[in-house]
Each structure stands twice: as C-alpha cells, then as structure tokens.
Design a protein around this nucleic acid. Structure first.
Lengths: 82, 82
DNA sequence: GTGTGACTTGTAGTCCGTA
DNA sequence: CTACGGACTACAAGTCACA
C-alpha cells in the first residue's frame, strides 16, 4: 500500500507548530502569560495564542518582537533542541 | 536641537536589512545566485532580491524555505556574528 | 488565562517587463 | 546576474466576541 505522502499544506502547518511549540516552551519557562508576551511585543493576545498553536505563518518582524518579549535571541526559536 | 527619534518604520526596515544582509552573506558564501536560491526555495527571483535588500518583511515559512535552499539552520540567519 | 472562528485591511508574494 | 518598477492575487496582520 502507498503510504500517503503528507501534503505540502500539512508540512507547512507542521513547521508552524514546531515554531509555536518552541515559543510556548520559552514562554512557560519564563513563567509568562500569553497576555504578558503580547503586551510586551505590542501584539494582540489572541494573535500570540494562534502563533503558539501553529495557526499563523507570522512574519520576520513579529518573530523578532516576540523574541524580544521573551528576552531571548530570535535564532533560539529555531533551535532543534530546546 | 532635538535629535529626531528614528521612526518605527525605520527601525523595522533596519531589522529587515540586517536579515537581508545575513541572507546575502550566506548566499554568496555558497556561491549561489539569487535565481538559484529562488528556484530551490520555490520563490520568485525578484522576491529574493527584495528580501536581500531589506525591502520585505517575509514570513516564517519562507524564512525556513530559504534556509533550506542555503543548506543552513534557519537560526543562523539570526546570528549576530556571521 | 486561553482557544476559536470570523472578519477587514494591508502587504506578502507572483509575474511580467526594463535596464 | 541583479535592481527596479507596475499590476495583480494570496494571505498575514490585526482585531473582536464568545466559549
């Protein structure tokens, strides 16, 4: 039987989820709420939540804002091992 | 005289330019053309050029595609020291 | 404090051309 | 090969109400 190849769309959301997972990892490690991060980054609370859940393909500038809010290097949000 | 505070927009494009500079650094180091990167990443040739020049606020998925095309970890595009 | 869906507006990203 | 522009379409940004 053919193992169904994952669609590009699934691949895309998978990558977004990976990013969201790392964000959540660093946020909870810093003991901060989504609201707090959103406020520090100047973003909407629900937007941050959506990013964490991998529902958003956010842009470079917002990645940098969020990294700032977390107090970490942006590159760390791309580390394979948290 | 008031030293004119840099507008948020200038700050934004400054960050985009930093990213573009790193992209160009890695691309030339790999001896690849913008066209080649664009092709590998499945993006438009002119779009890659615009990103390198800091004219575009590209999204997470395209950052990952470009890092892939360069054969590097996405996080390296955020390193302070190239 | 978070998840979710829906919605409008701005811009990301494409495609075509010129130099 | 790269910069730059115009015109377009797809989709991210940003916000909200409600669970």
């Amino acid at each position: 039987m053919e193992p169904v190849p994952p669609s590009v769309d699934d691949e895309a959301t998978k990558l977004q989820r990976q990013f969201g997972d790392r964000l959540r990892h660093f946020r909870t490690a810093a003991a901060l709420s989504q609201e707090e991060i959103a406020h520090r980054a100047g973003l909407d609370r629900s937007f941050v939540g959506q990013v964490e859940r991998g529902e958003r393909n956010l842009s470079l500038l917002n990645i940098l804002k969020i990294a700032d809010a977390l107090g970490i290097e942006a590159g760390r949000l791309f580390d394979r091992d948290k």
